[in-house]
Design a protein around this nucleic acid. Structure first.
Length: 265
DNA sequence: GTAAATGTTCGGGC
DNA sequence: AGCCCGAACATTTA
């Protein structure tokens, strides 16, 4: 389920054991989540290093071990992080298990759309440094949004919001929530939005992300009850404002839910 | 049995 | 080169 706030929640699941040293690393080495990673180098480098700190930017996470070993994790569609008491026996989808002194750090991902990176160096890896500002960052300015929208003029706004180069951390449910709260129909082309609508979009993006971080991101508690979030999962969901049936269609390749009254075409 | 799932990445067309 | 679309990836659940 991981978008911005869920990623933040999962990142913290490993932090209970900060400063403990790695005892051993167990992996399902041939799984897809390790594509592009030298698993052998990783499993040999980590033992003995202490788990030092973690970061999240958009949907990406970065974990530092010792002075110069880094694990990057993307949760894909079904990835989750958790800590388990020892002794811990991994099951089928627990593809990465880092055993520390008193706990095991576990990355589980049934569908394996997620990914594990391993990087060595005193500085974080390049792909991490180059992640653009997320909606919760100071650098996420209206001007930046305008420039990004201008590069995707013919794309439905729903599809544009899903592009991680412009909106790191926004995923399918957040995009629907943002569009509903902004009163913008998802199928409208980016270029068709008025200045007012772009401004409202920018404000709403920041509000939705901030609120999601304070609820889901903090302890996985529910976001406000009047959000579309609570209605969009079921086929019988209703618009929180009008109590009328929601529309549902594939837009930008993804299931999209909206209210025709709140979001006129 | 079939469809759909909170995500990226690739190849092809324009 | 940059933009846009659709298929592909792997597994579980409704």
């Amino acid at each position: 389920m991981p978008e911005l706030a869920e990623v933040e929640f999962y990142r913290k699941q490993w932090d209970a054991s900060l400063a403990q040293a790695v005892a051993r690393v167990a992996v399902h080495a041939n799984k897809r989540i390790f594509r592009g990673t030298d698993v052998r180098v990783m499993t040999r480098a980590l033992p003995g290093l202490r788990y030092r700190e973690s970061f999240a930017r958009g949907k990406q996470m970065l974990f530092r071990f010792g002075g110069q070993a880094w694990i990057g994790i993307h949760l894909g569609m079904t990835g989750k992080l958790r800590s388990e008491q020892l002794p811990f026996r991994p099951t089928k989808h627990d593809h990465l298990v880092i055993t520390l002194k008193t706990v095991a750090l576990v990355f589980r991902d049934p569908r394996q759309f997620g990914r594990v990176h391993f990087h060595q160096g005193t500085q974080p890896p390049d792909w991490w440094t180059k992640i653009p500002p997320a909606p919760t960052d100071r650098g996420f300015t209206q001007k930046l949004v305008e420039q990004f929208l201008a590069r995707h003029r013919r794309l439905p706004i729903k599809a544009t919001l899903l592009l991680q180069r412009g909106f790191p951390g926004i995923g399918n449910w957040m995009a629907d929530e943002i569009l509903w709260q902004s009163g913008v129909a998802p199928a409208r082309k980016t270029a068709q939005l008025s200045e007012t609508e772009v401004h409202r979009l920018w404000t709403t993006i920041r509000n939705v992300c901030r609120t999601a971080m304070r609820t889901i991101g903090r302890d996985f508690s529910d976001p406000p009850l009047d959000w579309l979030f609570h209605q969009r999962w079921s086929r019988t969901g209703l618009c929180p404002r009008h109590k009328t049936a929601l529309n549902c269609a594939v837009i930008g390749g993804r299931t999209t839910v909206w209210c025709a009254k709140c979001q006129p075409s």
